[in-house]
Amino acid sequence: MDTVTLRIKRYDGVKEWYQEYQLPYEKGKTLLYSLTKIREELDPTLTFSAACRHAICGSCAVRVNGNAFLACKTSLDQLLETFETERLTLEPLNNFPVIRDLVVDWEPKLERMKAVRPWLIPSEDGDPSEGFRQSPEDFRKIASPTDCILCGICSSECGQLSLNQEGYLDPFILNKAYRFAVDSRDAAPEEHIRPALEKGLWKCLHCMECVTKCPKEIDLAGENAYLRQASIQMGERDNKGARHAYAFVEDVKSKGRLNEVTLPMKTEGFVSTMNRIPFALRLIRKGKINPLHMPREVEGIEGVRKIYEHAQGVKEP
């Protein structure tokens, strides 16, 4: 391989176009190195942002062949190998307004972040002049979520956000909610969790894009599960998401397996389910569901129920 072609999406505030740049191939370089080389040697108008060069400032995220990466910590060799190509397409992050070329506008995101009250609501155990005591175990709970560098990769990759910019919160915002909800120094976890719940917490598609792409490997999906559990413990059980989850919990306990016939009713209630009659008839016609079918209890269901009993008394270590 002698040259690498970067096809970059340009935008000048009015028009959009793709522009190709050819660079001599050099081994062991980062994507940021290539972008810098283009700007300094081929085209001073190419606009992108970068600052720290070592994955702590979060400035340089871009999309390559549809996937978001931090330019500074992404090896060009790895990209070429992954996509089995000598030609890469670079675009600005998805789900952000674009300012110019690869530079996106963070202002609306930071504005939205305020919804979850992304700051410590100090508990009475602390004092401005004395600080807090916090156990090493409690610190460990906030160690990973505070790794977030606000790079926007999770927003770019989020399946729900791509369909619904307004009715859902970016994964990094949910991470902020989580980070304070589990902080032993915070007096009011509910105040971080409730806005997340009201802004579509249960709408996550479970696509796992955020956990896959996060450059800091934050377990965003696991955090989401925690926020949901916590919202249920706050008494927020009467919504489609929670009812749907409970339908599974209950079915497994009673029979071991899911009852697809009763699932919509349990999730949505009687009235909404009636709206699904055409859908149901369609399935019945093809034999996909049998309204008269009642799953039998699985072999060993008593054991399953004992596991449930045991789980009730345990919090996951």
């Binding site: 700051w119 602390g126 401005p128 002049s129 600080g131 005591r133 505070t146």
Partner: peptide, 21 residues
């Protein structure tokens, strides 16, 4: 005293076994 102020702001400091910074 500034460290205590930062702690009160929510800085996630690593902790010793007594829960202090």
């Amino acid at each position: 005293e500034l460290i205590q102020e930062l702690d009160f702001y929510g800085v996630p400091f690593s902790r010793d076994e007594n829960g202090r910074v």
